[in-house]
Design a protein around this nucleic acid. Structure first.
Length: 322
DNA sequence: CATCAGGGCCCTG
DNA sequence: CAGGGCCCTGAT
């Protein structure tokens, strides 16, 4: 367990429009102990350059005049340079300065998208984890229902993760891959992660021994990055999609739809029970081109938001089996 | 009770 | 390219 008692704060002004709540909190995500969210506030741990920090973000502004107070909790010392690097990293992970105005310009009158854009104006993609962390999430999601994913995530974090306490909150950060390499298979299996045991260990070995360079992956064209990710053992089209969209922030790729997503997109886009995935992919790409992933994110998160806020959507409930 | 598919992926034939 | 196996769970 790590307790972080020191704190430095600064205020940043993201490029407008920046919708803090919609960017930070994605209702479609499964509940996890990796962060805490309240309207306008967000806490999460960040392992960065071999140290763990506690990040608190508070929205002080509006969508068109965004302003965020960032507090960095740390253990013993935090240099000016370190602080700058952390802010730069957050800038990438949360898209403080990414210009997505073209998306709004192009689609504000789009027949399908316009209501979603109106409702969620200024929403970006975001991911507080690094590539390795999100990869672990991706593995938890494989071949499992939500309840099982939640259970595996909690069990693994409790045993191998780092509990981080700061600002009166308690959250978990993922283990270092170095630690996972040394984990015993018997111990892992006891956490009921099944075949994923092998994946956790193999993937961690790859990260440590081959030194997967996240910064390099961030700069690659999307298809190249995809090719690299698919080389990872246990990473197929769906896990690669998650990493490309969320950790690497690619809006310009939409070429895989898993079976449960297929049912949901069929309903949302065609109001039909089951449309072939090729049709869905073709539809999305031809309408929204290089903004496909952001466009579908607006539609996707909206329905989950409505569900979370008490709207009864029977056909959706059927697909989100807990 | 047994069987089976799942918010996939790998390997084999 | 199709199909079986992997782990566990809840649905049938």
């Amino acid at each position: 367990m790590i307790v972080l008692n020191n704190k430095k704060t600064l205020v940043i002004e993201p490029k407008p429009p920046y919708n803090f709540n919609a960017t930070i909190f994605k209702p479609s995500h499964y509940p996890d102990p990796l962060s805490k969210y309240e309207a306008g506030k967000y806490w999460f741990p960040m392992r960065f350059k071999n140290k763990v920090y506690g990040i608190k973000m508070e929205s002080l502004g509006t969508i068109n005049k965004p302003k965020i107070k960032i507090s960095i909790s740390y253990k013993s010392n935090l240099s000016k340079n370190e602080m700058k690097e952390i802010i730069d990293e957050l800038d990438y992970r949360l898209e403080f300065n990414r210009d997505i105005s073209e998306f709004f310009r192009r689609f504000k009158n789009d027949k399908v998208l316009s209501p979603f854009i109106e409702k969620w104006y200024g929403m970006h993609g975001s991911c507080t984890h690094d590539l390795y962390g999100l990869l672990m999430v991706g593995v938890f999601l494989q071949n499992a229902t939500v309840r099982r994913t939640v259970q595996m995530t909690e069990a693994m974090l409790k045993k191998y993760g780092t509990k981080v306490m700061f600002d009166g909150k308690e959250v978990y950060e993922f283990w270092k891959p170095e630690k996972m390499i040394k984990a015993s298979e018997t111990d892992l299996k006891a956490l009921k992660v099944g075949y994923r045991t092998k994946l956790f260990i193999k993937l961690s070995e790859t990260f440590v021994k081959e030194g997967i360079d996240e910064s390099k992956l961030r700069k690659m064209p999307v298809e190249d990055a995809k090719k690299e990710l698919m080389k990872l053992y246990g990473v197929g089209p769906e896990t690669a999609r998650i990493l490309l969209h969320e950790a690497l922030h690619h809006y310009d790729i939409f070429e895989h739809v898993s079976p449960w997503q297929q049912k949901i997109y069929s309903k949302l886009l065609f109001n039909k029970k089951l449309v072939p995935t090729e049709k869905i992919i073709e539809y999305v790409n031809s309408h929204w081109g290089e903004w496909s992933a952001l466009a579908t994110n607006y539609i996707w998160e909206d329905i989950f938001w409505r569900r979370k806020h008490g709207e009864n959507i029977p056909w959706l409930e059927k697909e989100i089996r807990l």
